[in-house]
Write a protein that binds this DNA or RNA. Structure first.
Lengths: 132, 132
DNA sequence: TTATCTGCAAACATTTTGCAGCGAG
DNA sequence: CTCGCTGCAAAATGTTTGCAGATAA
């Protein structure tokens, strides 16, 4: 992925404006609504390359769908995601890294990688739920 | 899921004998090899109900495939899985729980759930890799 | 110019579902 | 005897790919 095309800028710009994790299909729809015409396959291909270079983070949902988001920090971090509105907070995971390292050592595993994400209800959505 | 059928016992028994995480398709193939005839759809349906009752744990891989395993502990725990041979160790995650609770509190989230799994190379596979 | 990118449609992989018939209780 | 379970094949889902034409550099 080298060439800067209309389609790639469109996807990139959209991600820059979007706070929360979005699926490829959602992003495709958002582009379409905004008058941009980008093929779904191109959206997938672009997201794939952005993920490879670490420009966007990928979150795999329980139903198998992948969500994408341009994160503030490039370094390793985790996410606290609102199940209801998708609002996302980037959080550090020093405690998780230490835990992973200790488990690896205790059980003789090497090259141990980890996945850790948090899903809950943000303050705003909790308040709204309380009203209804 | 109430009736005890030949098919359900077969899947249940197979899981009882299997140490590592296996996909529905792998389990289906293993049954077939063992002379048992169980439809793939039935394997999926059975695994789904076993997962609902907490009798088996489900692990979703990066490629979207789901792996199933009958775990020793029923209570909440995490897994340290060998990427190479699939060997799995059940590990506690007190550190992770505390981390999740702290992040939730700091950012005003409630009802926070977490996913956390560890993937690495077990001692045996590391030794084997070293030889070749 | 020309190698890369795009769009479409077809291919893929995994999982789910509709339905007629089987079989456990 | 009955209602839930099974197997098959078809559908659904999310994603990837082949290919001919478009296009950035």
């Amino acid at each position: 992925m080298l060439r800067m095309t209309r389609q790639r800028s469109a996807v990139s710009d959209l991600l820059a404006q979007t706070q929360d994790f979005r699926s490829a299909q959602q992003l495709h729809e958002m582009l379409r609504e905004g008058g941009q015409t980008v093929g779904l396959a191109t959206v997938y291909r672009t997201l794939q390359s952005l993920a490879e270079t670490g420009e966007v983070d990928v979150l795999r949902m329980d139903d198998g769908e992948s969500l994408y988001r341009r994160c503030e920090r490039q370094e390793h971090h985790h996410h606290l995601v609102c199940r209801s509105c998708g609002r996302t907070v980037e959080v550090g995971g020093e405690a998780v890294e230490r835990w992973a390292a200790r488990m690896a050592r205790e059980h003789g595993f090497v090259a141990v990688d980890h996945t850790a994400e948090l899903f809950g209800t943000c303050a705003a959505c909790a308040a709204q739920e309380y009203q209804s």
